[in-house]
């Protein structure tokens, strides 16, 4: 049982970006991936989710033993993989409540209807935890949201969908310190022995709030170092140049 990535290579038409990436995230673990710009961190999250711009040339990814790369984007989601986007997209005219409801409905067997009362109860509870105003249920998904509101909304979706493995892609970018705290609390509330997290970040700051079990350093499409939380502090102090020497 794990999200197991083995020797993954992926490219865009003119360039290879992931060059032999390997990592295992087990339920209950929080992994952080740090690395300089252009190291392939965001590409990794998109490749795992099946974005059509990237071609996997070799390697394997399994989710609890199932071949993730053989699944469509939506099947990967339903299998338990969630990505909190760095830049969430807007969906004009579709209310937040309806969108999340549709996502939950998509997880039910055909013919089974989501219980609306229970759904709204849960939605309101999670929104309260994220200090989101109720007006966000009726507003169109991410439309006119501030950067911080978009990130909260990503975590709201994470909390509602309760995925087995979550990837947070630079969730801290564009957040002020208060928003960062609220978002981190949301993630921490979801930590459990059944769930694994992969936190991608450029800065150590986020890891003060979401404490990782293991920190990895990614450079040029693969991991070059792994260690405990202290590795993040070391990177913060010495910069990514250190990693080149290592």
């Amino acid at each position: 049982m794990s999200l197991l990535i083995q020797d993954l290579h992926a490219c865009i038409p003119d360039r290879e970006i992931l060059k032999g990436f390997s990592l295992e995230v087990k339920p209950g673990e929080v992994h952080a991936i740090m690395g300089p710009n252009g190291s392939g961190k965001s590409t990794l999250s998109k490749v795992l989710c099946g974005h059509e711009d990237y071609e996997v040339t070799s390697g394997s990814v399994t989710l609890d033993g199932e071949d993730l790369l053989a699944m469509d984007v939506d099947a990967r989601s339903r299998a338990g993989l969630f990505l909190a986007f760095q830049y969430p997209f807007e969906i004009p005219g579709v209310s937040n409540a309806n969108f999340i409801r549709a996502a939950l409905q998509a997880r039910l067997p055909k013919g089974e209807e989501l219980d609306a009362v229970g759904y709204y109860k849960q939605l309101y509870r999670r929104m309260d935890e994220l200090e989101m105003s109720r007006s966000f249920t009726a507003r169109s998904v991410n439309e006119g949201f501030s950067g911080g509101e978009k990130k909260r909304n990503e975590i709201l979706q994470l909390m509602m969908l309760e995925p087995k493995y979550s990837i947070l892609d630079e969730t801290d970018s564009g957040l002020d310190i208060d928003a960062l705290k609220v978002v981190s609390q949301g993630v921490n509330a979801m930590r459990s022995p059944e769930r694994g997290f992969l936190v991608i970040t450029h800065y150590q700051r986020l890891l003060d709030y979401i404490k990782p079990d293991i920190v990895h350093v990614m450079v040029e499409g693969r991991l070059i170092r792994s260690g405990g939380p202290e590795l993040a502090l070391e990177l913060e102090a010495k910069g990514y140049e250190l990693t080149h020497a290592a």
């Binding site: 989710c49 939506d74 990967r76 989601s77 807007e90 969906i91 004009p92 579709v94 969108f99 998509a106």
Partner: peptide
């Protein structure tokens, strides 16, 4: 936009429908 919706578990057709329904909502 479709990728975003599919990442939440909606099929491509469901994602398209939702976008279209949003447009004319």
């Amino acid at each position: 936009q479709i990728f975003y919706m599919q990442q939440r578990g909606l099929s491509e057709a469901e994602a398209m429908s939702l976008s279209v329904n949003g447009f004319i909502n």
